[in-house]
Amino acid sequence: MIPEPFEYHIPKNLEEASRLLAQFGGEGKILAGGHSLVPMMKLRLAAPKHLIDLGRLTDLKYIRESDGRIEIGALTTHFQIQSSSLLKEKCPLLPETAREIGDVQVRNKGTIGGSLAHSDPAADWPAAILALAGEIQARNVSSSRWIPASEFFVDLLTTALGGDEVLTAIRVPVAPPRSGHAYLKLHHPASGYAMVGVAAQVLLNEARHIESASVGVTGVGPKAYRATAVEEALRGKAPSRQNLEAAAAHAAEGIDVNSDLYASAEYRSHLAQVYTRRALEKALERAHGK
């Protein structure tokens, strides 16, 4: 439980952080809470030579609304999201997801940016950000860009961030009227990560049929993904149990499903379907209530 030697850097501003990251290339790693990275380092599964701690960049800790969007700074902790009254009103899927992450200590120290950049295949945030069709801001010394969530998660622990880019913010649309949300998760009994986690965001039309549904799934494959076949199957449909069940059957379609001591691939696929249907049911129930 002792990491390999590394050098620790604590930049005073984002520019310095970007510069350090560019300077160290593949040998540098951003520390933004450390609740995924540090355990891996202690097990010597990760051994960055340089650790660049964003802890001083307090201006990356914010939640604000502008132009019909919510923007969240990368260093905002899970607990800040869980307890934000703005988010509870404008984007309740995020606090609901935050509540399911780790334990109190993890939620108090871990950050949304750190989690997304780490891209653990069983982390909770990717499912929610995918379901919300969010965007992720990446900045390097000279430029800044917004990456759509659907392009951000590339593979196991791999994102679309460039070697010199720092993840600085996340933005998601404000939940429209007649929409509903849900995040349902089966916790791994040891790690607390998702054996399966499903984030659903639905929108009803005036006829109270499904205008659109978006579903983000984590814990099931090598990376979190949008269950597009489920979404397609629901477009314009009545929210009947039969329709939901038929759509949810596609939840793990085309996915190379994970297998471990607690859940085989077969069982996990089944869980993905059940949790998808249940998340949709809950989200629809809430949409109807509005």
């Binding site: 355990p39 097990l43 009994p189 040891a190 790690s191 990560y193 001591l261 607690y262």
Partner: peptide, 10 residues
């Protein structure tokens, strides 16, 4: 196979 508390379910 259960050598860490990520795998061994205390």
């Amino acid at each position: 196979m259960t050598g860490t508390l990520m795998d061994y379910a205390v």
